[in-house]
Design a protein around this nucleic acid. Structure first.
Lengths: 147, 147
DNA sequence: CTGATATCAGTTGTACTGATATAT
DNA sequence: CATATATCAGTACAACTGATATCA
């Protein structure tokens, strides 16, 4: 006989589970960031700059997996707030070099705490091992998101 | 020293991995369904009717995890195509009972093949055990998508 | 009355396309 | 000229909100 935990074909589809789990995750993250007046794009840009140092906007797009059309507004807002600076590249003046400023680093810490809180909410009920396994299984799939 | 496989904080965030893996999955599914002139909503509705039998639209919304606002148009289109019938419930005439018709069952088979092809594309490089593990890890997260 | 159901109109957020200006 | 970068306007889609009509 079928075990009672046997889920329907629809409920076992990896693509469907991914989209619904991502929706849950997105709600947690959005809510956590709203609590500190932030946005996922801000976090992605600040964290990437913190990790890789100053980058051109197009390089930022690549590293963050963001679209060029969305990057402009995000960087402009972060620059207005003093979290990043945006200066023409001396070597290639088509480029604008985006650099993390001290205020941006402090801002990143706040966003990072909110984000980690959201991960824990999302994964409450999952063991640390489960989190590691999930990350390991998702990494090769997520890697194909860029192009 | 850090192992070379050590990914950045950003790249290891479960919420981010989920959203990017879901994006990859969604592109595969959308493309596969486009190939047969279908849509994910059609598949969800037809598969749910096939599995649970005739349902009211609101019950369909619950089972599919779809919004009531989106369900109306989907059911109308499926009814126009003869894949489902929509008749007033004899017991409760506020309800419309949606029933899978033979043409809808044949349509479901086509969509199902496309969807399963998309899963295999998505998971190429993952073992069958990996697929099972992924499903097991995602199921409790995805379950929270409804409300 | 209330509560549930179905429908319709419209909003938001994310991903994305196409066109343009500018500089190499 | 071609190529890369940044910007702007606007599209496509899924998820969602609010209002309304219907009827038990």
């Amino acid at each position: 006989m079928e075990p009672s935990t046997e889920a329907s074909r629809l409920a076992r589809l990896p693509s469907r589970l991914l989209s619904r789990a991502a929706l849950v995750a997105s709600r947690h993250v959005t809510q956590a960031l709203e609590g500190v007046g932030g946005h996922r794009y801000d976090f992605a840009v600040l964290a990437t700059l913190d990790e890789f140092g100053p980058l051109s906007q197009s390089e930022l797009c690549r590293r963050c997996g963001m679209d060029r059309s969305d990057m402009t507004a995000v960087v402009s807002a972060l620059a207005d707030e003093g979290h990043v600076s945006r200066t023409p590249d001396a070597d290639d003046r088509r480029r604008k070099v985006v650099r993390l400023e001290p205020a941006g680093r402090r801002r990143l810490e706040v966003l990072e705490q909110a984000i980690e809180g959201a991960q824990q909410q999302l994964l409450e009920g999952s063991s640390p091992d489960d989190r590691d396994r999930l990350v390991a299984l998702l990494t090769p799939l997520a890697a194909r998101a860029d192009q």
